[in-house]
């Protein structure tokens, strides 16, 4: 497989890499950059566990090729917040029971960032609709919806 030179920004850091043209973005992030917070749940674009932000928009990294990311800016869950400086959504997911096993959580967080960017004050129906590209088997979505609503109510939606 021929290699492609790739230059992009991942979680605020410039990354230069050589990738085969068929390298999935999810593989590139997890296997080449060791950013294993991005999960794989289906690799067919259904579960959303692999969601990341590309130039601020949510993208399923199992459906994207690494080579398409040249010159783009990617944010994974690792770039969202750290201990002591958690993103408000991360904080609310913790407090409202937005996660149990945690496997879907990175994907939901990314989808939620995108959702609140588009609609800073969503009602429950809009939140649920905005999450329709992500699956969670543990929470019944209740804690996730509660977390996103309370983040928006606290004015962190924008």
């Amino acid at each position: 497989m021929s290699g492609h030179k790739l230059s992009l920004v991942v979680n605020g850091e410039r990354v230069e890499a050589d990738v085969p043209s068929n390298r999935l973005l999810s593989e590139f992030l997890r296997d080449d950059l060791a950013l294993t917070g991005t999960k794989r749940g289906c690799e067919t674009g259904v579960c959303g566990a692999c969601s990341v932000l590309v130039d601020g928009d949510v993208v399923k990294s199992c459906l994207s090729l690494a080579v398409q990311m040249n010159g783009r800016e990617i944010t994974t869950v690792e770039g969202l917040g750290r201990v002591g400086a958690l993103h408000p959504l991360q904080q609310q997911f913790m407090e409202k029971g937005g996660l149990q096993c945690g496997y879907c959580t990175p994907g939901f967080l990314m989808a939620a960032v995108d959702l609140l960017k588009r609609n800073p004050n969503p009602d429950d129906a809009e939140i649920r609709e905005g999450l329709s590209g992500n699956l969670c088997r543990c929470t019944g979505y209740q804690g996730i919806v509660d977390a996103i609503r309370s983040t928006a109510e606290a004015g962190h939606g924008a």
Partner: peptide, 21 residues
Amino acid sequence: MPQVSAQEKVQGRAVYAGDIK
């Protein structure tokens, strides 16, 4: 109270078997 594993999980830092290298 939040689960004791919640903080590492919201950061994507909990290690599942498929993450181990």
